[in-house]
Amino acid sequence: MNNSQSLNKVELVTIDEDNVDQRIDNFLVTKLKGVPKSMIYRIVRKGEVRVNKKRIKPEYKLQEGDLVRIPPVRVSNSDEKPGPSAKLTKVSQLEDRILFEDKAIIVLNKPAAIAVHGGSGVDFGVIEAMRALRPQQKFLELVHRLDKDTSGVLLIAKKRSALKHLHDQLRYKKMQKDYLALVRGEWQSHDKVVNAPLLKLTLKSGERIVRVNKEGKASETRFAIKQRYKGATLVQASPVTGRTHQIRVHCQYAGHPIACDEKYSEQKFDDSMRALGLNRLFLHAAQLRFIHPVTEEVMQVKAPLDKELEQLLKQLEKA
């Protein structure tokens, strides 16, 4: 195919909460890796990219539920970044972390310290790794995201119909996500819900951070105490909305930052946790409850805590 590869199928993408308010041109740059920006502007101008079957301008901002038509594009192989090798340790270890798999979905216990997808400064993430492990699988897409430093249940769709079904569940809040977080201090029993709007900000350094701000998007997290320790509490956090860094910022806002959270925690508490061997954010997506996109059965998948987190809890003194 003379040193070019043809992405020769029209792709239809349903926009979820993660891409809301993103400009269509920026969305296409990440979606069509290796395609020059000039070509992206050309296909938008010519009306080959459509949103809800209509022509749009490059500055159009995506809305939740938008259906984006992406035309076939030809890119030169020399511009293509090779995907990760399936033999890489980081990639092959994901195979052992599959909690459930069938023809429609994969449920993974994502390790901490690996991003869900490649991007700014990250060569590859979980989704690229899974594609390397499943080269015969034509369709593999993330249903939702987890922060790089968060471990636990991550859902991947193997069919477009499954992806759409699961995205609808997210949109209509039919998916229940429960996280475990170790937070500083004594979480108060009456603090069962944190309702605080969240705003994404970019600092001068270029670091992206989230703050509680009345200009932000409505955000709600429900909390339950699982175990009290001396100087810390293990809480279950169940987000009702799905904002970036939501649980982390809501814990900080409640006065109980999560252990070893580089963006939102407190040095003294973190130092005491590191002294006990914790070298990562103590936030774990422990279970996910959803409706199977094909069988319509209610599924509840649990991801066990990683050894490092288990070890830490064993060392803490119960209150």
Rank of each mutant, 00 (worst) to 15 (best):
L203S: 12
A218V: 09
I225Y: 03
H144N: 07
P135F: 08
G216P: 08
H190Y: 11
A218F: 08
R211H: 12
I156G: 09
A224C: 13
V193S: 14
V193Y: 08
K148A: 10
Q137F: 01
R211D: 15
G206F: 07
S189E: 14
F223Y: 03
S205K: 04
L142A: 07
R134N: 15
A129T: 00
R228Q: 15
R171D: 09
H167Y: 13
V153S: 04
A196D: 06
E128D: 05
F139L: 03
V193W: 15
K159V: 01
A218N: 12
K148R: 10
K226V: 15
T150V: 06
D149G: 09
R228N: 15
H165P: 14
G125S: 14
E207W: 11
A224V: 11
R134I: 13
S151R: 07
P197K: 01
K138T: 05
T150F: 01
L142F: 10
N195W: 06
W187M: 13
K148E: 05
V194I: 14
Q137H: 02
H165I: 12
G206M: 14
R211Y: 05
E128L: 04
L146F: 02
S151Q: 09
L201Q: 08
M175F: 04
H190N: 10
I225R: 06
K226G: 06
K192M: 15
R145F: 01
Q137W: 00
L199I: 13
K192S: 12
W187Y: 08
K148S: 04
D147C: 01
L155Q: 07
Q137G: 07
G185I: 02
K174E: 06
L155A: 01
Q227M: 09
M130N: 14
V210T: 12
R160W: 12
K158D: 00
D168I: 02
H144D: 08
K214Y: 09
S219G: 04
S205P: 13
L163K: 00
L170S: 03
S205I: 06
K174C: 12
S205R: 02
R208I: 08
V143M: 15
V194A: 14
A196G: 09
S151C: 09
R134V: 02
K226Q: 12
R134A: 03
M175V: 14
L163N: 02
F139T: 08
R208C: 01
K158V: 00
L170K: 02
P135C: 07
L166M: 00
R171Y: 10
A218P: 03
K226F: 11
L198M: 12
V212G: 08
V194L: 03
Q227F: 09
F223K: 13
A129E: 01
M175S: 13
G185D: 04
G152Y: 03
T221H: 02
S151W: 08
E220A: 12
L140R: 00
V212K: 03
H144T: 09
S219N: 09
L142V: 10
D149E: 05
D191I: 11
D147H: 01
R222N: 09
A181P: 11
S151H: 10
L166Y: 00
H165F: 11
Q176K: 09
G125R: 12
A132G: 06
F139Q: 02
N195P: 11
K200F: 07
T221E: 07
Q227D: 04
L199Q: 05
E207T: 07
E186Y: 07
G152T: 05
E186P: 10
H165A: 13
K200S: 06
T202A: 06
L182K: 02
L203E: 15
